[in-house]
Design a protein around this nucleic acid. Structure first.
Lengths: 350, 350
DNA sequence: AGCCTCATCTATATCGTTACAAATTTTTCG
DNA sequence: CGAAAAATTTGTAACGATATAGATGAGGCT
């Protein structure tokens, strides 16, 4: 008895100290609820998990007390015990040139995670390490229950690795792998196709497109949509050489400035990013070429930016916030358990 | 003995199952290292903590083994035992209009956290809950060891709360509270002052500035810098009414469009954000006013965007990535222990 | 030899949670 | 009424780390 008393006293003293220090009541745990209700810690745990073998009346009582004292399960303890981290990891490439790309994604993701126990952790992918490294690391050390990543490649190593290990993930963009996998993608084929048609309808006679680096799947989709349109129309075209959507914007502009000085210059441009579209406008301006007469442009719009750009530019909208939201939703569904693969895929239409 | 054997067998069987399932060797723990070195778990723990009472030779041997098998301490276990989360929480306001503001901050923060045990967790602040809520939540439930937040107010409740509880934090922007606190800020006073001087030097005769909402401290800094300059020069001025940098960009443009139609219209604009600067350009364009002749503009530049904007606009640069990096560094220093307050403050110059 | 000191290593308990097995109480029914 | 079945609650161990206190052994000193 005396030992137990001592133990209790010691514990109480400790928690009082903690309370005094933090300035608020000590953080409630299952034990707190157990003491308040006179139940065992195990019972409280089961009750909160809504286990059917706990009397309904008890479950309700426990839930009420828990709510009253503002109980929140300790993430560390849960994670240690169950192995579930309640974490979603967003692997962020520092290279994202599209303004606000990451922000939009994050906003969508947090919205999807809202009300769940999941937290969003940003895992940077530093450019001096292989792309697969952060993914391997998260998987090996169970840093998260699910992974979100972007800039998917046709034979993406990350997808392969994650699929092999049956680790929940979702990526922005598709692969060309035989095995279907979860993804959210934007229909870049249609974007490029429709953009080309618009330019032609507006009177352009030679089209140009600035593509993302070849290694990304969506570069192929864009090219395919572009090529389909120009072939259908039998119109001249070219694909910007030496620069990509990932190039520094000054380099894109320099390329365009040079190209616009040459005789066979294109007069219709398709830009898959806002900054590159501005680069087109800038070099046209620097050549005193008039937009809409000498040069035409269709840009992909991902922010409110182009609402303020003059002269007005034709744009096609891609909703990145929605993409982030979808990624969150689908990933959560995947984490909850196996699901038919087509329920884990989403293609945003133009 | 038989009981122990059974226990061991059970455990081994389990971990083998885990290994088979994940396709890689089971995750190494202190126990793994203990078995490999023949030491006790406690010793290994101490050795890795570089405790001086462990023989140097032993420490080195343990470190080597740990590195060889790729040991990484289990975050959940560490967090549960020590109470330290190894998490930095960035409270993100969904309202950030500045393009890529969050992304730049995040990039800087992750760079500062690189190589440390700290993870970056994004905690959204949904606009339908009071601003202090996420901070209170993080503190009460010890969701992080430190908090980063932005859009600081003169009598910021978050700062007060965190200071009272001696909880490590850093904010972007200053308060006007009596007690000094850690911050990283940009010298918006000088920005506005210099921007005004530039406009005047370029021939503007009446200045206008679009301010952030009044509740933010940097709105006051901007106004103060602006007012100082216009008073020094004895020049006409006004402060945009009814719109702020947080207004929808279309609303800003509509306001400006209307204002530019009136007789006493300003001819020099100071914009604290890129999108609002574009709005100025758009409404000037829509009025057929020529930039640099009828209307002058100095914008704050926070991305590469304005390198592509034509006609070229005078800008003053604010490095948000560096701000994020500084915030990370200073917060880590604060978490490591108390430090002289002036070592936890940084003011970025224009 | 016997005792002490110092250097080094180790056992135990604990953080808060949950899986598992077991115990307790209540109900059912012959 | 009493045994079996059902309903409800509980104890124990474990997840992986570390703080605390204690154990072990080598060497020094008298």
């Amino acid at each position: 008895m005396s030992l137990e008393d001592l133990g209790d006293k010691g514990r109480r003293a400790k928690s009082e100290r903690a309370a005094a220090k933090s300035g608020v009541g000590a953080k409630p745990t299952l034990k707190t609820i157990a003491e308040l209700t006179g139940l065992a810690v195990t019972t409280v745990s089961h009750a909160l998990a809504d286990a059917p073998q706990i009397a309904l009346e008890t479950r309700q009582r426990v839930r009420k007390v828990a709510a009253d004292i503002g109980y929140l399960p300790d993430r560390a303890a849960q994670r240690l015990r169950t192995g579930r981290t309640n974490v979603i990891s967003l692997v962020l490439d520092p290279h994202e040139e599209i303004l606000g790309y990451a922000t939009s994604m994050i906003n969508g993701l947090t919205e999807a995670l809202r009300g769940t126990a999941y937290h969003l952790v940003i895992t940077p992918h530093f450019s001096d390490t292989p792309q697969i490294e952060p993914v391997r690391h998260i998987m090996r050390n169970r840093m998260a229950d699910g992974i979100v990543f972007t800039r998917t490649e046709p034979a993406d190593e990350r997808v392969k690795l994650l699929m092999e290990n049956n680790f929940p993930f979702i990526c922005h963009g598709r692969t060309e792998l035989a095995t279907a996998h979860p993804y959210v993608d934007y229909d870049n084929y249609s974007f490029a196709y429709q953009a080309a048609k618009k330019l032609i309808a507006a009177g352009a006679s030679k089209l140009s497109i600035i593509l993302p680096p070849e290694r990304f799947t969506f570069a192929h989709h864009l090219r395919h949509g572009f090529m389909t349109a120009v072939r259908e129309e039998g119109i001249g075209f070219e694909i910007a050489k030496g620069v990509t959507l990932d190039s520094k914007s000054d380099d894109i502009r320099d390329y365009l400035f040079q190209r616009m000085a040459e005789p066979e210059r294109p007069d219709g441009y398709i830009c898959g990013g806002e900054v590159s579209a501005l680069a087109v406008m800038a070099s046209a301006y620097d050549h005193h070429l008039e937009l809409g007469r000498d040069i035409r442009l269709v840009a992909k719009q991902t922010s409110g930016l182009f609402d303020q750009i003059r002269p007005r530019v034709e744009t096609i909208y891609e909703d990145l916030t929605e993409a982030g939201f979808l990624m969150g939703e689908l990933l959560l569904k995947r984490i909850a358990g196996p699901a038919p693969i087509q329920e884990l895929q989403a293609l945003q239409t133009v």
